[in-house]
Design a protein around this nucleic acid. Structure first.
Lengths: 202, 202
DNA sequence: TTCAAAGTGTACTATATAGTACAGAAATTT
DNA sequence: AAATTTCTGTACTATATAGTACACTTTGAA
């Protein structure tokens, strides 16, 4: 028989509820109810609510970074780059446009005191940004992007549109604005690539 | 003598605290303390907390739409367009990168039940998006942007970068990513304009 | 089998919070 | 100046919430 699943059940319920309602609007009791666990177990596995939030951030990072998720964070080819925005748009549709980025949502709810948790959020954001930056750098090195292209800036550009697009989707309950923004971004990146050399289509 | 300022004082304190901490993390008592008012007055002027949130959204819309704010929402010239991103970056610096868009922050904290409040948020977002769209349309009509340019999509693109950039700034406590994203956006828009015709610089 | 550690259940405490009740003051109207 | 409305202060209630205490059970190793 497996070791206890209780901790994981709590974390997964917490992720779901935090993603849906934010951290502040989600009570511990709600998490316990959704995961079918109890207070005693909560204090056994976590120091306090912040401890659980940290665990959710770490867990989220792990499942995303190990690719157990529908969204495409890792980009190695132009085809994957093209899928990058689309996978977030598709994700939004799959949650009825009622949520935004789970990490962004949790991060946005942090108070200025919770610097340890914010570090965790930043760690993840940097990772996903660097995934993109590495791709752009690779393409620049390979001559697919011109020497004037700035891989880091392009990565920040994509992440900003993604985060903003996710937020707008949640607020407006449709992906129209996100799709428009992503389309313009793709056109821009494509234009850089054309400029680069061979003019293959994005 | 002026009519009572109590209502306004409450709204302004609420805006400040909501912007800083979000709606859910801000208690009514906190707002009363910061504005130097009392419970009796609160219930006299507002039905409940949601009533105050609605009032803050309306008040915010009014001061922004009437231009009593440092950020540039209304764009009539390319110079103002260039200032558009910059004014948000400057704003973020002025609040030590500890906040993001006030409307976005409030909107993000809304539950799925609070549809009336979300309507208010959407109303504002549409307004600011349409301000940009009108500018791009105007430039398209005037031949400064090519017929292929999509004013609505360009407006959504700018808003997404702005919202995402504001959020990233708050999370990371610096404007680097926002600046990079805005720079790429400016390069793109500029490139469209060059394509358009006379090649005047953005 | 015994024993320690890991895990669980229940009851409780202290506090924060939204919202109510209502009397009284101040302003405004008649 | 009397009456009416607007506004304000204080006390209160009900509830939700984070966190505590602690006894009990299960597990797994020696």
């Amino acid at each position: 028989m497996k070791k206890t699943q209780t901790r994981i059940k709590m974390i997964e319920a917490a992720i779901d509820l935090f993603h849906q309602q934010g951290v502040n609007a989600t009570s511990i009791d709600e998490i316990l109810a959704q995961s079918g666990t109890g207070k005693g177990q909560f204090t056994h596995f976590f120091k306090n609510k912040d401890g659980l939030v940290k665990a959710t951030l770490i867990y989220l990072s792990e499942i995303i970074q190990s690719g157990q998720v529908a969204t495409v964070y890792q980009v190695k080819t132009w085809q994957e780059m093209d899928l990058w925005f689309q996978s977030f748009i598709d994700f939004q549709r799959s949650v009825n446009c009622e949520r935004s980025c789970p990490i962004g949502t949790i991060g946005n709810d942090l108070s200025s005191k919770q610097s340890e948790l914010r570090e965790e959020v930043i760690r993840f954001l940097s990772w996903s940004r660097n995934e993109l930056a590495r791709f752009f750098q690779q393409e620049k090195d390979g001559g697919e992007l011109p020497p004037s292209a700035k891989p880091d800036a392009l990565a920040d550009f994509c992440i900003a549109i993604m985060q903003g697009g996710m937020l707008l989707t949640k607020l407006k309950r449709d992906t129209d604005a996100f799709e428009n923004a992503a389309e313009q971004a793709r056109i821009y990146i494509k234009s850089l690539r054309m400029t680069g050399d061979k003019g293959r289509s994005l």
